[in-house]
């Protein structure tokens, strides 16, 4: 391998942490969704590196699966964000927490 396996894993880890930070600190639900996407793709990078390291094609098939799952998840997530925007009129995570209330009115 041209690039040592540990570097690929380090890249994957850094990407994952950046995605985590993006998901946790942004005030816009769509940016939270972006952060989730970055985390998923970081995982995909780790799988590709592993496929190269052990010369097994299954790693790359796993990436195809991840992309499919990410697409489905984003479509559902965007639908939920549209619903929340219609209910509360804003994309701030603070404003939607009352939708999670479990108290009976």
């Amino acid at each position: 391998m041209i690039v040592p396996y540990s570097h690929i894993l380090l890249l994957s880890a850094l990407l994952f942490v950046l995605g985590m930070l993006c998901a946790v600190t942004r005030r816009n639900l769509i940016m939270v969704l972006l952060g989730l996407e970055i985390m998923l793709n970081a995982g995909a990078v780790a799988f590709v590196g592993a496929a190269l390291r052990w010369q097994q094609i299954e790693g790359q098939t796993m990436v195809i699966f991840i992309l499919a799952v990410a697409a489905a998840e984003v479509s559902i997530g965007l639908a939920l964000i549209v619903f929340a925007y219609r209910r509360t009129g804003s994309l701030d995570p603070q404003s939607i927490k009352d939708l999670f209330s479990t108290e009976r009115p």
Binding site: M20, A23, V24, T25, V32, P93, Q94, I96, K97, S101
Partner: peptide, 13 residues
């Protein structure tokens, strides 16, 4: 528990 969704995510992470 009853706060913003991001706090919950912080707990997970």
């Amino acid at each position: 528990h009853l706060s913003m969704v991001q706090y919950k995510m912080m707990v997970i992470f």
